[in-house]
Simulated assay, not measured.
Amino acid sequence: MQVVGVDLFCGAGGLTHGLKKTGITVKAGVDIDLACKFPYEVNNNAVFLHKSVSEISGAELLSFYPSGAIKLLAGCAPCQPFSKYSQGRPRDERWGLLYHFSRLIDEILPDLVTMENVPELLKHGVYLEFKSKLIDSGYSVKDKVVFCPDYGMAQTRRRLVLVASRMGNIDIIPATHKPSEYQTVYDAISHLPELKAGEVHPDDPLHRAGGLTEINLKRIRASKPNGTWRDWPNELVAKCHLKDSGRGYSSVYGRMAWNEPSPTMTTQCYGYGNGRFGHPSQDRAISFREAAILQSFPDSYQFAESQADIQMAALGRMIGNAVPVRLGEVVGLSIKEHIKTIT
């Protein structure tokens, strides 16, 4: 039984790539970020629709599903409005995108639905409405917060994952890794060539590290794996960290540790001062390739057609916002197990 999917909010293709690794065919992805068109299409052999989900119709998406296929509608609405860092801010217009996801479910009536987002979404009425509407429409729904190391990812990301089916009870596959088996930063990126700050590897334009100012070079040399800026000599400590408002931000300007999973990758993960994004042993921030691998993209995943097309902010956005490929694979495996139980 062929499962065919469409990926809403597809970005650079992390969810699509993971689904395809399990044998699910993904025909198209939808996203407003035009920078994602090249990586999405070249790595996934699928059509990229440069549109807002609010502007697309179910009829348009139905054209991608062949007759007789099991229809999957997948997506990860932008998570920033629901993130803990956005709590207390005015309501973001992107909240409404989850309602458009629900609208498209009504118009398409897919056999399967999956979505992924930040755990904080569980607290919001918009998600409870989304889930209740699925149940009222005859879907079996399973959701849980996934700790990525439990499924073989070298990153301490936590994500809310939902799977739903109109064909019977569905579940998310159990954890594949015990804590003693967690993948580490060393497992993920130690094989990559060394770089200096500001360098680009000649064989891989994505293996590039941001430059460092003279004081930040001194800071990273004074940084310990899993340490904080409190380990530095006083003359290197930034003035903002001496204020009460800055004392709690201990992970900024931090190094990762080789023997542990990495912190969550963000859109700013290529900047040493933006979090614990310092390389464990080299005096630089992690490269874009290293960040992509920690997001479980394969080493060969292409993000830009040529070196001239590489823009650091766009790369950071695509990598940090991506659904980890392995998480897409976990969803795909859950779907495949579900189909086994109903056939």
Rank of each mutant, 00 (worst) to 15 (best):
L128Y: 11
V42T: 10
P90G: 06
G29K: 02
L104D: 01
R103G: 08
L112T: 04
G13K: 08
G29N: 07
L98E: 05
L97P: 00
D92T: 03
Y85T: 12
D7M: 07
L122V: 09
E60W: 02
I135C: 12
I24V: 11
I32D: 09
V30M: 05
T22H: 02
Y99E: 15
Q87G: 06
L128H: 12
I24H: 01
I70Q: 03
A35Y: 15
G96L: 07
F147R: 14
H100N: 09
H17M: 11
V118R: 00
T114N: 14
G23R: 04
E129V: 11
E116N: 02
S63Y: 10
R91N: 08
F64H: 15
E120P: 00
S83N: 03
P81F: 00
C79K: 01
H100G: 09
D31G: 00
V118N: 00
A46C: 07
A46Q: 07
G14V: 05
E116A: 03
V42W: 03
S52D: 06
P149A: 05
D33R: 06
K84I: 15
E60I: 01
Y127K: 02
I108E: 00
G58M: 12
L109M: 12
D136F: 09
E93Q: 11
E120Q: 15
C36P: 05
S137A: 14
G13V: 09
A35D: 11
A59V: 08
E60N: 03
R91D: 11
D143V: 10
S63G: 11
V146I: 14
S102K: 10
R103D: 09
F64Y: 13
